[in-house]
Computed example of a mutant assay.
Amino acid sequence: MPYDRWPYNRMGEIEGRLVVGGYDCNLHVLTSEHDKWDKFVRKNGDIRNVVCHQGVCLMCVKDGDKDQFVIEQFHLNEDKKWRFLTVLPNELQLYGVSVALHDNSLYVVGGRTESGEIVNTARVCDLHSGHWYKMDDMQTKRSSCSSVIINNTVFVGGGKTDGPYFSNIVECADVRDRKWRTIPSTTTYWPTLTSVSNRLVGTGGDTQQHWLYSSLSNIVELYDERSTKWLPLPLMTHKRVAHAAFSTQNGELITAGGAGGDYSIEYEDSIESLKCD
């Protein structure tokens, strides 16, 4: 896997090919033969989030030239060029935001200011018009969290909260009324949420809430709406936090990157998968 420090959710899939965005300013795409990585260079900046839809990568990018966060798009199957889409509003010029895509709406949640203040803001961008809409603020302030949309509901979990703490609180909001409520918390703190066959799955994280007592986890769990409980799935091979996770079109769960061992100095560069029937 190309070096990609703490990827959060900077990973996706286009036509069966893994797509990874990194702090090296570039987009890395696994070749169709799965034996090497193609690199598509962006001049200046770093990629904070990646979501893929219908052959297009949408990325939240910290633009180094203009020192602002923007949304750009990359058409892998066309001319393979970077295209500017929109600038994030002033209140979303934040580090550690999370993005999720639903139809033609881009959801941007959480983050922290340059001074370190954690926020609970949530905004939606209509990609057709470029107009931004305000959602209710989340109940929990969080940065570097993960978000995913399943059956018209946006779920947000994990992340860092005020001070040296991680969160295991999961909030969700219907995309129509955009009002937040909580569901049972995940087993671990700061897991990565994703959707597998339209079901909510949490991967990895930390067994401790405070970073001083950090103990990384390889737990994978599935949220069962009927029982409102998190049910265990097979463990990952590697313990990891602040990593990327997503599912392929055939229902395979992919986890990659993140921090491993001593999360403050060690990085996990492996990719692993689990077939979820």
Rank of each mutant, 00 (worst) to 15 (best):
E117D: 15
Q139A: 10
K134Y: 02
V148R: 03
S147V: 03
K81G: 08
V56R: 11
K80S: 08
H102S: 09
D126K: 08
I118E: 06
V70E: 10
I150L: 02
K141N: 12
T86N: 14
N152S: 13
Y133E: 11
G64H: 03
L92V: 00
S143Y: 04
S105G: 00
V109G: 01
S146A: 10
T86W: 05
C125W: 06
V108D: 00
S115K: 13
D136H: 10
L92T: 02
N152D: 14
E78W: 07
I118G: 06
F74A: 07
S143P: 08
R123K: 14
H128W: 09
E91A: 02
M135Y: 03
H102P: 02
G110H: 06
Q54K: 15
T153C: 12
Y133W: 02
H75V: 03
K62L: 11
V156C: 09
V50D: 05
L101W: 04
N120C: 15
V51Y: 01
T86C: 14
D67H: 11
V61H: 09
D65P: 00
Q54C: 10
P89F: 04
W82I: 05
H102N: 11
L58S: 09
G55W: 07
M138Y: 05
Q54V: 05
D137T: 08
D63C: 10
D103Q: 15
L85T: 12
L127C: 07
G110Y: 05
V61F: 12
F155A: 05
W132Q: 03
L58P: 07
A122C: 15
D103Y: 09
S144E: 13
I118F: 08
K80A: 10
F84D: 06
M138R: 03
S144M: 12
L127F: 07
